[in-house]
Amino acid sequence: MYKLLTIKDVVRIPPRMFTMDPKDAAKKVLRETYEGIYDRDEGVILAILDVHDVGRGIIVPGDGATYHEVIFDVLVWKPENGEVVEGEVVEMMPYGAFIRIGPMDGLVHISQLMDDYVVFDEKNRQFIGKETHRVLKLGDHVRARIIGVSVKSKIIRENKINMTMRQPGLGKFEWIDKEKRKAKEA
């Protein structure tokens, strides 16, 4: 889920930035510090959007920088259990498909790809349903539901998202469209 948050924090502005406008200097420091980090409570910090207020600076003895209380807006994305997401298949492994869903990749385990016995065709790097003959390959666009989020680190790639495509309305868009047509015909 995407959210826009207003945050208050203290920013260290180094002496080399003293000639800049305080808001611009604070925004640059905030971007370098926060963007691309996974916050356990808020999610992936995608962008520092606007700096509303930069308080008076305080100089700490032994440090030439100034410290300012700053109020700023942040765009974040936090994967939530039960959330339905859309993405693209970006990697295939014998145990499942990795789906790019915004700033992170999630794994759909082979057992969660479809309601069918699924085999991995290693030569063509694709999954095939034995009964339905459905094929999932690199570049396919899918809809999935998040069923598990494991947060271990501030580094985005070290966190894991588990997903399923074995529910009505989920899967490769082509499969979903076929199911809708079948339902209308019946």
Score class of each variant (00 low, 15 high):
residue 2 Y to A: 09
residue 5 L to D: 01
residue 6 T to D: 14
residue 6 T to N: 15
residue 7 I to V: 14
residue 10 V to H: 06
residue 13 I to P: 01
residue 18 F to D: 03
residue 20 M to G: 03
residue 23 K to Y: 06
residue 25 A to R: 01
residue 31 R to F: 02
residue 33 T to N: 11
residue 33 T to D: 10
residue 34 Y to R: 06
residue 34 Y to Q: 05
residue 34 Y to T: 00
residue 36 G to I: 07
residue 40 R to G: 08
residue 41 D to V: 10
residue 42 E to V: 07
residue 49 L to G: 12
residue 49 L to R: 15
residue 53 D to E: 15
residue 53 D to S: 15
residue 55 G to N: 07
residue 56 R to T: 12
residue 58 I to G: 03
residue 62 G to S: 02
residue 64 G to F: 11
residue 64 G to K: 15
residue 64 G to A: 15
residue 65 A to F: 06
residue 66 T to K: 06
residue 69 E to D: 11
residue 69 E to L: 10
residue 74 V to D: 01
residue 79 P to Q: 03
residue 80 E to I: 12
residue 81 N to G: 08
residue 85 V to A: 04
residue 86 E to W: 06
residue 89 V to L: 07
residue 90 V to P: 01
residue 97 A to F: 04
residue 97 A to C: 07
residue 98 F to S: 01
residue 99 I to T: 05
residue 100 R to I: 04
residue 100 R to F: 04
residue 100 R to M: 11
residue 100 R to A: 14
residue 102 G to L: 07
residue 103 P to L: 07
residue 105 D to N: 14
residue 117 Y to K: 13
residue 118 V to I: 14
residue 118 V to K: 05
residue 119 V to E: 13
residue 119 V to R: 09
residue 121 D to L: 07
residue 122 E to L: 08
residue 122 E to G: 13
residue 125 R to L: 13
residue 125 R to G: 05
residue 126 Q to W: 03
residue 132 T to I: 06
residue 132 T to K: 11
residue 135 V to L: 09
residue 136 L to T: 12
residue 136 L to R: 02
residue 137 K to F: 07
residue 138 L to E: 07
residue 139 G to C: 11
residue 141 H to Q: 12
residue 141 H to S: 09
residue 142 V to I: 11
residue 143 R to K: 13
residue 144 A to I: 11
residue 144 A to K: 10
residue 147 I to F: 05
residue 147 I to Y: 06
residue 149 V to T: 14
residue 151 V to A: 04
residue 158 E to N: 12
residue 159 N to L: 02
residue 159 N to W: 01
residue 163 M to W: 06
residue 164 T to F: 09
residue 164 T to M: 14
residue 168 P to M: 05
residue 172 K to W: 00
residue 175 W to V: 02
residue 178 K to M: 15
residue 179 E to S: 10
residue 181 R to C: 08
residue 183 A to V: 09
residue 184 K to Q: 11
residue 185 E to W: 10
